[in-house]
Amino acid sequence: MARYGMVIDLHKCVGCGACGITCKNENNVDRDIFWAHHLKDTTGVFPNVKYEFVPTLCNHCDDAACVKSCPTKAMHKDDKGLTLHDPKKCIGCKSCMQACPYEVISFNYNAPHAFWRDLASVIDKGTASGQETAQEVGAPIPYYNPDRAATYEGIRSKGIVEKCTLCDHRLAKGEQPYCVDSCPAGARTVGDFDDSASEVNKLIAQYCSRQLKPHAGTKPKVFYIRSF
């Protein structure tokens, strides 16, 4: 049994949002749903002002509230300690969304990716439409990533929730999660907290680390080191 999680170095993070954008890219995430997102805060009074940016994602909690609340075991822990979601078991009750202290689970209220099924073109016969583009390219979303479907629904369907899997499909192939690879600052490190030699353990030993809402008691496994 491993306990995979992430360390984010806020000193290196510049708040560019590449993690959130590329996450949507990798995981075929619909408009306005975010698996990886951010908190931001401006404090102080001009000219003594502080801006902070904190990238967020599923904390893959050791004691995950979503897993506890799920009535069908759709939300579950896997052997890497990841909190995963089985779309076939999900009944769409949204208990996990209520239970998650971090607001990182999203519900598919509608059939996903309506943008790419839209027939409207702004200039008749002159410009394309969402559907025409998707059809010409031959994929449900033109940049649809088929790799995602290896361990999850490639595109999650209407009526179920979805969330970050820490790119379990990439971890399975020995690759880093896509947000880690695409962070231009190299601020993200993923590893096994049960492995005392892992980079993540070294980082939290070297710096004092913080977690989001530790008092929620879910034992989150995304640690933040240094400050923005």
Binding site: S69, C70, P71, T72, C90, I91, G92, C93, N108, V161
Partner: peptide
């Protein structure tokens, strides 16, 4: 209100002992 009401009965056979909803 459920996203997948047709799967409601699965709460019985996918029973999660920790889940009050179950």
């Amino acid at each position: 209100e459920l996203g997948r009401p047709e799967r409601f009965l699965s709460t019985l056979y996918n029973f999660n002992i920790q889940s009050v909803t179950s």
